[in-house]
Design a protein around this nucleic acid. Sequence first.
DNA 1: AGAGTTATTGATAGATCAGTCAACAATTAT
DNA 2: ATAATTGTTGACTGATCTATCAATAACTCT
Lengths: 193, 193
Amino acid sequence: MARPREFDKTEAVRKATRLFWAKGFAATSTDALLTEMGIGRQSLYSAFGDKRRLYLQSMQSYLDEVTAGHLDRLNTPASPLDGIRALLTGIAAVDDETRALGCMGIGSVSEFGAGDPELCRMRDAVNRVLFEGVIARIEQGQSAGEIDSHLDARQATEFVLLTMIGLQVSARGGADLESMHRMAAFAVDRLTA
Amino acid sequence: MARPREFDKTEAVRKATRLFWAKGFAATSTDALLTEMGIGRQSLYSAFGDKRRLYLQSMQSYLDEVTAGHLDRLNTPASPLDGIRALLTGIAAVDDETRALGCMGIGSVSEFGAGDPELCRMRDAVNRVLFEGVIARIEQGQSAGEIDSHLDARQATEFVLLTMIGLQVSARGGADLESMHRMAAFAVDRLTA
DNA sequence: AGAGTTATTGATAGATCAGTCAACAATTAT
DNA sequence: ATAATTGTTGACTGATCTATCAATAACTCT
């Protein structure tokens, strides 16, 4: 029994995310956020708490969406190795502008390091999910003979996640689609029997 | 024939670098820089231009030093493969505090992307030097039979540089020494014949 | 010693920062 | 209709930001 909110909270977070993703936390002003989100100052503070809380909510929504995409690409192909390949290749967004943004999660690692407990918890959750997803595919691939059975599955999984990070930073650094696909393919080939 | 500077410019840049490295450009205030560097405001502006120019000089000095270390580790071992191994293992600083800083160059990629021409030029120069150094070792290793001759040397080099990036971001994310060494070793083993 | 040059110091400008307050508007329940 | 509740609006606060200015200090060369 009160006045209803005039903006869509989810959409507002989405718009905030675009700014935080592109410029990081410190370089994104609340004024810029208000303009991008199309809301008033007090609306931001009453709906989201403060700039930091909005950032955390943006990060969570970003990670949820991106992680779902990763898992989808990883698990859709029938072949486990093709799943790994799709995961790594899929890091490179086809659209130049999107690809150049890199990964917002890695952006927060670079900006805050391991010092922020809440961010660390969010990242750990994502990493756990990705690790489980990838290691399952690795083990499947080893059983199927696609992936070298001599490899330690956990280490191979760490390797895939490490490669994802490298690719994401490369994208942010301006890597083109072709070179990213080449690097992804090379890494995938390092796993084959 | 004028009053001499009271502080050592090189040392002042070194101190500025520590701040920029730890917190990035945007989150480092000139006040914090003055305190850390132990100089007055006008001294900073007349000696370095402005905050951004100081950042660029810090970055250059950082990249020079770090790149020299990389090349040293890469080229010191008699065995080319051991050189690659030393390069990757050496990414993980033994000291926890230093390791947690990650790489300042990658920090600038994350903060500014490919949008800043001056930063891009500096990074490109480093990447070229590292690429040449690594590919030379790769080719040596292939000739010596240590490294799989079927691998495309350029792609293998890209792979090594990509792994470096992954390791550096992992370090910033809080990875411990052991896991970094494990990941480095795994990557190196992917190159062996 | 004095002129010329550069560094340091302290004050301050002007903009921008995150966040709050108070008045007003829109809705629901009674 | 009216009370209660919540959202919106715009002004505003105090802090902090980068950068500059003017005055003073330290040095070298003649």
